[in-house]
Amino acid sequence: MRHLKSIVAAAVCAGVSAPPAAAHGIWFAQRAKQVAMIYGVGADDLDMVKRLPLVERVEAFDATYRPVGATLRAAGPIVLVDVAAPPTLLAAVLQNGVWSRKGEGEFEKKGRDEMPDATLAEKTVKYAVSVQGPLTRPIPALPTQALQVVPAGALPAMLGTPMTYVVLYKGKPVSGARVITDLINDPDAKEITTGADGRVTMPVRNQGLNVVRAVYDGPSDDPKRYDRIEHTATLSFALPHVPE
């Protein structure tokens, strides 16, 4: 019995070991009718309060995309967004640090200067844009979002509708970004890679919250510490359900 418990414990530990930094993203979602900032992947809603010091910026914008005051605050185990007026968009940037690993081992929060024999060293940055109100004009490229996913047209009313997204890197369409349509309910989906126009077309997956995720590996700005900068961006929006 003791041997069996050891095997089970080892399996549990393996299951909860930290996945590569690319697996995680940030997005905004309702929690008890308040908007919260989430860090996680799939059904994993991880400790955002612990990561609050890593948030470089949170922003809100009105229907004409003028800035609206926005702040974050810890409320028990979650991080809530306080805004000066109802926003049309929310946006955030989280600096997730430098991570390295040897071979296929687990990532450690070290740079190549600390782990010179690492097979990969990368800086990871997370971005989020969330549609909170009706869109009356196209979402612009936001200067603070080095990587951004924008809808190419109006948001649809029904799940299953084909939707085209444009992935922007530093404000311009980028090829080679890897996109999935649902970070929460299908995080292991096969990625679709953007072409030269930065576009991908996928059916809208949920009649509710949708979190589209894109990852792009950009050049390093500190090659001695890391080989690349891994940018992970989400676009979240919700489709309404039938009135109760």
Rank of each mutant, 00 (worst) to 15 (best):
residue 111 G to V: 04
residue 171 G to I: 00
residue 210 N to T: 10
residue 187 P to R: 12
residue 154 A to V: 12
residue 157 A to C: 02
residue 101 R to P: 00
residue 153 G to A: 15
residue 156 P to R: 05
residue 89 L to Y: 04
residue 147 L to R: 06
residue 182 D to R: 14
residue 119 T to C: 03
residue 149 V to A: 09
residue 115 M to S: 03
residue 197 D to N: 11
residue 136 T to W: 12
residue 92 A to Q: 02
residue 180 I to A: 06
residue 134 P to F: 08
residue 189 A to V: 11
residue 188 D to A: 15
residue 191 E to R: 15
residue 97 G to A: 06
residue 88 T to D: 10
residue 111 G to H: 11
residue 175 S to L: 01
residue 183 L to S: 13
residue 200 V to R: 02
residue 120 L to T: 15
residue 93 V to M: 03
residue 200 V to E: 01
residue 111 G to P: 08
residue 189 A to C: 15
residue 144 T to I: 12
residue 131 V to E: 04
residue 131 V to M: 03
residue 164 T to D: 07
residue 122 E to T: 11
residue 161 T to G: 00
residue 123 K to H: 13
residue 134 P to N: 14
residue 182 D to F: 07
residue 177 A to Q: 05
residue 172 K to E: 09
residue 209 L to H: 13
residue 183 L to Y: 13
residue 121 A to C: 07
residue 130 S to R: 03
residue 123 K to D: 09
residue 163 M to I: 06
residue 149 V to T: 08
residue 109 K to C: 12
residue 144 T to N: 13
residue 85 A to S: 08
residue 86 P to H: 06
residue 153 G to N: 05
residue 112 R to F: 09
residue 82 D to V: 02
residue 158 M to F: 13
residue 193 T to N: 09
residue 166 V to C: 10
residue 130 S to T: 02
residue 86 P to R: 08
residue 93 V to I: 04
residue 116 P to D: 00
residue 141 A to V: 00
residue 197 D to S: 10
residue 175 S to Q: 10
residue 152 A to G: 06
residue 99 W to Q: 02
residue 165 Y to V: 08
residue 158 M to Q: 15
residue 154 A to Y: 10
residue 158 M to T: 13
residue 117 D to C: 01
residue 113 D to C: 08
residue 178 R to Q: 10
residue 174 V to C: 01
residue 205 R to S: 12
residue 209 L to Q: 13
residue 142 L to N: 02
residue 135 L to M: 06
residue 140 P to V: 06
residue 95 Q to L: 15
residue 143 P to G: 05
residue 98 V to I: 10
residue 112 R to W: 02
residue 207 Q to F: 06
residue 200 V to W: 01
residue 105 G to A: 02
residue 151 P to W: 01
